[in-house]
């Protein structure tokens, strides 16, 4: 979808929130929901940071690490891609304490979601790194660079550009999966919605607002990543421009 349509959709969804805020039946719930949305945004941002770090590390480990590191990266990727995010959350939240490690719900949320998305991201990062042309490696070898220098100065900056679009999709997945943390007692947007739904039974206004707020948040991510994509691919003969 074109960036203009996306911006129109974002403006429209913000307008809908603003118009609904003037209605007493809706404005009643808005402050609580926005409070929940703040927590959702926090978990998304922290989870995204963890996911990027884990994704790039696992991809590098899988591609260039010695055999034990490669196995470790593979096991990490397969386990976190192979099981449900909800199962991972519950495992960290309910099972880990029985081994003597008790984490706060907030920490569990960031850890589980970050590691989950990171495992998917590792595959994107791996694809992006291997998509850098062979000639770039050869030129770097010809310039007598060390392996670390090649990766840091030549390969990763180019791979980074190719990584942006798939990472954009993953960040949306991350935002959506933060709704799961409501099931481990964190009062995020989905939790607030359910809580108020149970006390007031005003289902329609609450869930309509929640859907529009999530939509606006994910449109911000999509538009932001498109912008980044355009910026990062300046001067390169690839990628789309804004």
């Amino acid at each position: 979808m074109g960036i203009r349509t996306l911006i129109v959709m974002l403006v429209a969804s913000l307008l809908v929130i603003a118009i609904l805020a003037t209605q007493p039946a809706y404005s009643l719930f808005l402050p609580q929901l926005l409070e929940g949305a703040l927590l959702t945004a926090q978990i998304t941002v922290l989870g995204a940071l963890l996911a990027v770090v884990m994704g790039v590390l696992a991809a590098l480990g899988k591609l260039y690490g010695p055999a034990p590191v490669r196995w470790l990266a593979n096991i990490y990727i397969e386990i976190f891609r192979g099981t449900s995010a909800l199962v991972q959350l519950f495992w960290l939240f309910f099972v880990l304490p029985q081994f003597g490690i008790s984490l706060e719900a907030y920490t569990v949320a960031v850890l589980a979601l970050g590691l989950n998305i990171g495992a998917y991201g590792a595959e994107c990062a791996r694809g992006a790194i291997t998509s850098v042309a062979r000639g770039q490696w050869e030129a770097a070898t010809a310039l007598n660079m060390t392996r670390g220098q090649m990766l840091r100065r030549i390969i990763l900056p180019q791979a980074f550009v190719a990584m942006i679009p798939p990472w954009g999709n993953l960040f949306i997945e991350l935002l959506k999966s933060t709704a799961l943390v409501s099931l481990i007692t964190l009062s995020d947007l989905a939790f607030k919605a359910q809580e108020m739904n149970q006390t007031t039974m005003k289902t329609i206004p609450i869930f309509t607002l929640v859907l529009v707020i999530y939509l606006a948040m994910s449109l911000v991510i999509t538009i932001g990543m498109r912008y980044l994509e355009g910026r990062a691919s300046r001067g390169l003969a690839r990628g789309r421009t804004v």
């Binding site: 979808m1 349509t5 996306l6 959709m9 949306i172 935002l175 959506k176 999966s177 933060t178 709704a179 799961l180 409501s182 989905a190 919605a193 359910q194 739904n197 289902t203 329609i204 869930f207 929640v210 859907l211 999530y214 939509l215 994910s218 449109l219 999509t222």
Partner: peptide, 24 residues
């Protein structure tokens, strides 16, 4: 395409709640 974008960018959990709690 707007509909697809709407469905893809809101959490499945909320959609499940929507069908289960709002549709009645």
């Amino acid at each position: 395409s707007v509909l697809v974008e709407l469905i893809r960018s809101t959490p499945l959990l909320i959609q499940i709640f929507f069908l289960y709690f709002v549709f009645p």
